[in-house]
Amino acid sequence: MFDPTTKVLVVDDMMTMRKIVVKACKDIGFSDIVEAADGQKAWEALQAATSPIGLVISDWNMPNCTGLDLLKRVRSDGRYKTLPFVLLTAESEGHQVAEAVKSGVDNYIVKPFTPELLQRKLEETHKKTITR
């Protein structure tokens, strides 16, 4: 599992969902959590972070810059090519999942989710990303 000192970036345009994700992250053991309200602000937070962000948990459907746009931007920048990236989505239509997989997402979580599911998905993500 990720080290609890890992800095986590939680991205969602809905404040309520950010609270739910942040609370679940804290329950899992993370304490260094930053938040952003859309993909553009998340991108700015990645650049501005004084200590490196080690995990991104981002909503998909957001105005301005979606989670998929953010993922593509992150993967096209050499500095973040291996940054663990998890998409949260309210939809699980096959073509969308495929689009995320093609764009380099490490894992995805379909809402609604329990803290236990989040933990399991993060464990999977850690196993998948630790070797690269």
Binding site: M14, T16, A90, E91
Partner: peptide, 11 residues
Amino acid sequence: EILNIIFGQAK
């Protein structure tokens, strides 16, 4: 947000 998730699942 609740409606968004309900809609996503139903959709």
